[in-house]
Amino acid sequence: MIRVMIVDDEQHARDELASLLNEVAQVDIVASCANALEAVKLINKLHPEVLFLDIQMPVIDGFELLSLLDQEVMPQVVFVTAYDQYALKAFEEKTLDYLLKPIDPERLKKTMAKIEAAIDTGEEPHYQTPELTRIPCASGHKIKLIDPKQVEYIHSDLSGVHVFTAEGNFFTELTLKVLEKQIGLLRCHKQYLINLAHVAEIITLENGLAEIVTLSNHKLPVSRRYLRSLKEAFHL
């Protein structure tokens, strides 16, 4: 059984696609959700093999969603859209396939055949994703989009990943790995990313450790492993 996940902001659209998938193929629908943030969380957790992804969604669209994903968990992606103005772009991104709403069951069968073939070859999906220009964070019932320049540092702990800015700290579903790769923050510790523009001081300690003091006087640990790259970044 292929493990599938559906992302669409419309309940009926999700239901219909799920029904159709159950009719035409042997699939295990591991999750379905209504927005990109939920999707990131579920993908990171459930590692689905295939993602049926609506393009037009609130705040973060389907394309942007892909840049929030770690390559390690990247599923095969099938875009679903109501109107084919995005189709060309979807092809450029070299997604596996795309479907037009309302979905034709026969067409869906062909898509499933492609998916099976792709999974059989074991080839890892690689998508060109748009540059991440804002970090989506949960803020009450809204999605807060944070400009990477405003970020002072990012910290992960057991409760998740926290983005620290002058405005306060925000919870994000994105992993440190994705953030490090996508927005150009520097890793200074297993659990910390630092924005070099906000560094006030680096204090070297014993045992090859160090400590960063940020402009707003926060102290971050620097582990032995990352001190070198940090120094290189400052041409020290």
Binding site: E10, H12, A13, D15, E16, S19, Q56, A82, Y83, L100, K101, P102, I103
Partner: peptide
């Protein structure tokens, strides 16, 4: 029209079940 139309039709197709 087009976007609205196709989404509407998709919704109705789901509801008709």
């Amino acid at each position: 029209n087009p976007h609205f139309l196709f989404n509407a039709l998709n919704t109705i197709i789901a509801i008709v079940r």
